[in-house]
Design a protein around this nucleic acid. Structure first.
Lengths: 340, 340
DNA sequence: CTGAAAGCGCTTACAG
DNA sequence: CTGAAAGCGCTTACAG
């Protein structure tokens, strides 16, 4: 086994270079203040010793950790993972490390995890969705923690938000379905508790149906995100609301489940049943038939959230909220000729 | 806006409680050493002030950061995201925070990112795949950084590894295809550079084909992971190796692309073309036809890697490497009657 | 341009 | 059971 080698400290470098620790520190942090030959000697020795400043000592002294926290429902979901991937890259490039915390979908109990992040040194936060937790809001405001919300576009809140308009996107889709002639529709929502995105989508569906005068034939049911839940929901819809000609799913994953169940039920999509998703996961183009869905710009969301957080942390605060475009992706899983 | 509230310190709590900072500290860290009524008073005041110890100061004093680093190729890939999700939950439950770094697929240039993680305070590391970087290996060994490798099962290396046997899994699949009667096969590998998992899979394919005496009719091509690359590869195979009856993909994503291209080429799967994947992504059961694939236990991998790292950090080191089971999932995308 | 010294906020041996 | 003091490893105002 290799001989043990301890982490070297300013003192070690100073000793070998025959200078004070102050000079070592300056060679790194304020190089112009050090005579060139001295600085080069110091730097060379530091490299030789594999020196790098102790981050805890540095953080304590500078009152800066260069750590941010990211709070997401889960990583096990393409849209969040992709968002986080580009967020992390953006923060890394700017010299920040990111703590990741997966906390589930209900934002009404975010206080503890966020508190933990801040207590552990996070200087800034990225949070998916709206903050629905009064103590948390108070905490973040009192402590002036730079915070950026993402996923939802929330222009009126106390924090900058980089996201898209869930209501408008879902409404666009619902109206599209109505325009196609559908009069009996079911929306399969994701978990709505503490989840403003899902709430907005369900509301958009209800509003569109109401305005079209078909709300009495339309229903919203709530399921968790999984293929099986989607499939089971479709089975249930088929028996409880047999007049249904369109199922609008709040996520592609649910829609994938619905599609597979339609196959089992021998329901022809889109001729007998129109199905739509939300997210535009890669697969949605490959289902049989390809899934109609909403394109959510996850990668862009991550990058821009990172930029917004960086800017919020550099004391300018008050970044205007940014609304990202979503696109309705119309594919063969919708039909303009509902037959029932 | 809420009145600003600064983070309170031991000193603030001590003053209000009329005790020394030592007593405050002990009330948290060694409660039995403090008289009950005093301790309760201290704790109550600490709670009221929202006190929590400064992590940098604590880390500096204790020489413990309670931070670990996780190095993954990307989060934007279901298998790594899922693994990381459960790893993070496991570490969180044990009081650790995790720094995440997405570094791409080539493990031969891991030194810089890993170094960064350690320099930033990571006490332990989770790394996806084998370490193919001599300076990094030397660094980790000299500094005695507890490290766990995951994804690949590497029983002979210097670090514990929690993963599966890529060679055995791929070989099992290749032999299965040969047993079905295929004699002209192509493997679409992922990027092999600095990626022992992909190397093993390709080698397994070659070995199986060689032993079956059909290697002259079999080919390995390398593509990056994406639907489009898979589709383009299939197009290429169709024109360059028209005798091919089976395409073995090193990932489900590639296979999804292949499947969709087969549809465009009017190649009936599985009658004219057998297709297999690797990963068992949820979606693989829903393709048309369902994809034959290898089930990789990503969630379990994350949990057990976390446990292994915890155990390595608690100074016992030397956790035996753990080999996780993979399962060959046989579905309708394979046929036992190749017609060409 | 350089160094000695203070201090960031903790924890813990030591003394009482 | 409690407190005064040292020290973790840095950076930077201050003095020279």
């Amino acid at each position: 086994m290799a001989p043990i080698k301890v982490r070297s400290k300013v003192k070690d470098v100073a000793k070998q270079a025959n200078v004070s620790v102050a000079t070592v520190s300056r060679s790194f942090n304020n190089p112009d203040a050090v005579r060139e030959d001295v600085r080069n000697r110091v730097l060379a020795i530091a490299r030789k010793l594999g020196y790098s400043p102790n981050p805890a000592a540095k953080a304590l002294r500078m009152q800066r950790t260069h750590i941010v926290g990211a709070v997401v429902p889960t990583l096990d979901y393409a849209i969040y993972a992709r968002m986080l991937n580009s967020f992390q890259e953006t923060m890394s490039a700017a010299g920040y490390m990111v703590f990741v915390l997966a906390v589930g979908f209900d934002n009404s109990k975010l206080y503890e995890p966020v508190r933990q992040l801040v207590d552990r040194g996070a200087e800034g936060l990225l949070i998916v969705g709206r903050i629905e937790d009064a103590p948390l809001l108070k905490f973040l405001e009192e402590r002036r923690i730079p915070t950026v919300l993402t996923y939802s576009y929330l222009p009126d809140g106390p924090f900058p938000a980089i996201g898209f308009d869930n209501y408008a996107a879902a409404r666009q889709l619902a109206e599209f379905l109505i325009r196609l002639g559908h009069r009996h529709m079911v929306m399969i929502s994701g978990p709505t508790r503490g989840n403003d995105g899902q709430q907005s989508r369900a509301q958009a569906f209800v509003d569109a149906a109401s305005e079209a005068g078909i709300i009495k034939n339309c229903h919203v049911i709530e399921r968790s995100y999984s293929l099986n839940e989607g499939a089971a929901a479709m089975r249930w819809i088929h028996s409880e609301y047999p007049a249904t000609t369109a199922v609008m799913c709040a996520s592609d994953v649910l829609a994938f489940g619905v599609l597979s169940e339609c196959k089992k039920l021998k329901l022809d999509v889109p001729r007998q049943m129109t199905v739509s998703g939300f997210d535009n996961q890669d697969f949605s183009a490959l289902t049989e038939p390809p899934l109609t869905t909403i394109d959510v710009p996850a990668g862009e969301m991550g990058v821009r959230s990172g930029e917004a957080l960086l800017s919020a942390m550099s004391a300018h605060r008050g970044i205007a909220s940014v609304r990202l475009d979503t696109n309705l992706i119309v594919r063969a899983s919708t039909s303009n000729a509902p037959e029932k």
